[in-house]
């Protein structure tokens, strides 16, 4: 005697769960995937300025890529990556102590104010912040004249229209985006872990290197992503402060599109830049993961032969 028990049918259909992501999927498809697809598509075309969209797709090929790799463009390419990598490292070096201080050292009642001080500059328009730099740094400006009068510097400030200016400003512009994720990561580390490390005999340095830093890893990763990627495409800083010498790839792509009306070449450079950023991030990830693996191997305590002496 078998009584088949059939579970009652559900009264209504359940919508698939991914529908929750629907709006953002539509948004990204329309405004990210489609434009980028066009950029990739155009990058194989030829310039034809008689058309409204000046691209001729009748004989697609890789010629734009070979031109993008020519020495002149490649120089800007390398310079951009150098500026972005240097700036990312600098934001980590400058931002980490601040985040550490905020998370562990500062009295709790001050913390909100200090955090606000880090965040508030980011609320000012990026462009305005950058343009504002021109005022104190002007070679004929008040600051420049004071410093010369006091004998601090021999000649007028000559920082504007240089790559150094871009390098410094880019660190300043993105520092907040490094400090915040670092702070969140450090703040999540339970104090007991650090106490336990000290209880077990680790010194300050050792606790930092072997407990705090690894636990802050996700924060560093987030910070690097949030700063390195936009830095590579940064256009404002280089245009406003860089002059001819501080030319970065964003400005070059812009001038290919708008100035030269060479959309195919501009697209090819843009595609190469996207790839280069991905490759850089992949290299970074491999170095970090590989490094961790190596460290673990080196520090492994082998218990099979009994406890070490």
């Amino acid at each position: 005697m078998t009584a088949s028990v059939v579970p009652p049918k559900r009264g209504r259909l359940r919508a698939p769960k991914f529908l929750l992501a629907g709006p953002s999927i539509i948004w990204y498809v329309l405004f990210f995937v489609a434009p980028i697809a066009f950029i990739v598509y155009y990058s194989f075309g030829t310039k034809d300025s008689s058309k409204l969209v000046p691209v001729d797709m009748s004989s697609p090929g890789f010629h734009n890529y070979s031109e993008a790799f020519s020495s002149t463009f490649f120089t800007t390419f390398k310079a951009t990556l150098r500026v972005a990598v240097t700036a990312t490292l600098l934001t980590v070096v400058i931002g980490f102590p601040v985040a550490y201080f905020l998370a562990f050292k500062v009295q709790e009642r001050w913390r909100a104010i200090l955090l606000a001080l880090v965040i508030v500059p980011s609320f000012t328009s990026f462009l305005i912040r950058t343009v504002a730099w021109r005022i104190p740094l002007a070679p004929n400006g008040t600051l420049s004249k004071w410093l010369q009068d006091w004998g601090v510097i021999g000649g007028p400030i000559s920082l504007l229209e240089t790559r150094t200016a871009v390098q410094i400003a880019i660190v300043y512009n993105y520092l907040g985006f490094m400090i915040l994720p670092l702070y969140v990561a450090l703040d999540r580390i339970e104090p007991v872990l650090r106490e336990a490390s000290k209880d077990l005999g680790a010194g300050r340095v050792s606790t930092f290197m072997r407990v705090t830093l690894p636990l802050a890893g996700p924060g560093i990763a987030a910070g690097v992503l949030l700063t390195f990627i936009p830095m590579c495409g940064d256009y404002v800083t280089a245009t406003v402060l860089g002059g001819a010498k501080g030319n970065m790839i964003g400005a070059l792509i812009d001038s290919e599109f708008k100035g030269a009306q060479n959309w195919p070449l501009g697209s090819a450079i843009a595609v190469l830049m996207i790839l280069a950023v991905l490759v850089m991030l992949a290299i970074g990830a491999i170095v970090v993961v590989g490094g961790q693996w190596l460290l673990r191997r080196m520090r492994r305590v082998d218990l099979s032969d009994g406890a070490p002496a």
């Binding site: 310039k47 300025s49 002149t72 010498k245 030269a260």
Partner: peptide, 18 residues
């Protein structure tokens, strides 16, 4: 020569930053 001029100009720009 318009395209060529634009091309030369962008090379000048790229070179000036190098």
């Amino acid at each position: 020569a318009q395209d060529r001029i634009a091309d030369i100009y962008n090379k000048i720009k790229a070179k000036a930053g190098g």
